[in-house]
């Protein structure tokens, strides 16, 4: 029994079919609770006013935007090393979800920036890095859709993802070098374990983060399953044509 068993599409379909309802349920439950709790049962923050409530969407979506790219990097590496088709299809399936998360983070950031910073957009390193990440996602998805041969597309997009990851990190630090930030630092530093956010906001925020993660898992599983089904259909059609 190893993890690689699920590289077999049949096993993956069986497992993902069983996991999917749970992922949806967890997403609905935590996201629903977290957002309702956050929006209606937490007070306005000093200096922020009601705008603080953007945090329940902004932070989790930004988190998932980066993690989605990271997941694509890992699955791309697995595809290049072990040639498991499910892995390549999962990377393909994650990109549109990741780009949506990036867009949500950017838009909610703008909505939050307007009342607090007095501007929709600032050329702050974090904002700039996210815009660059958004462009990376677009390029990655465009390359997938431009190539017809699926194996070649999986290979080429995997290479783009690897090189893009290096440059994304590089751009992040280059942007830090280039301009001073306006965006606040992280409120939940994982490395030190401390946090600079009051418990009132922290618990619904954690729920919303779990909810976004579960939503991401559910969407990616769903999309991967439909990619697999699409390939199976294409294979069946090809076989039928060959027989006739």
């Amino acid at each position: 029994m190893s993890l690689w068993e699920y590289a077999n599409p049949v096993k993956f379909m069986a497992l993902s079919g069983r996991v999917l309802p749970w992922a949806w349920a967890i997403a609905a439950l935590t996201l629903g609770t977290g957002l309702i709790w956050g929006f209606f049962f937490t007070g306005d923050a000093d200096k922020f006013g009601s705008s603080v409530k953007v945090i329940y969407v902004h932070v989790p979506s930004a988190l998932m935007a980066i993690n989605a790219w990271f997941m694509m990097l890992v699955t791309s590496l697995i595809w290049l090393v072990r040639r498991h088709h499910v892995s390549a299809l999962a990377a393909k399936a994650a990109a549109p979800v990741g780009v949506t998360m990036t867009l949500i983070a950017l838009i909610t950031g703008a909505l939050w920036g307007q009342p607090t910073w007095g501007t929709w957009w600032a050329w702050d390193p974090r904002l700039t890095s996210f815009l660059i990440l958004f462009l990376f996602y677009l390029g990655y998805m465009a390359l997938w859709s431009a190539l017809e041969d699926t194996d070649a597309a999986a290979d080429l997009t995997s290479w783009l993802c690897i090189v893009g990851s290096v440059f994304a990190v590089l751009s992040r630090y280059a942007a830090k070098f280039w301009s001073q930030g306006m965006h606040q630092g992280t409120t939940l530093p994982v490395a030190t374990g401390g946090r600079t956010i009051s418990d009132i906001y922290f618990y619904p925020l954690v729920l919303a983060m779990v909810g976004f993660a579960a939503l991401f898992v559910a969407l990616v599983l769903l999309r991967t399953r439909s990619e697999i089904n699409q390939r199976r259909t294409a294979a069946l059609i090809a076989r039928k044509r060959g027989a006739a």
């Binding site: 462009l135 390029g139 465009a142």
Partner: peptide
């Protein structure tokens, strides 16, 4: 261009 230009940023 879409692929290369973001890589030119640094």
């Amino acid at each position: 261009s879409l692929i290369v230009l973001p890589l030119y940023v640094p």
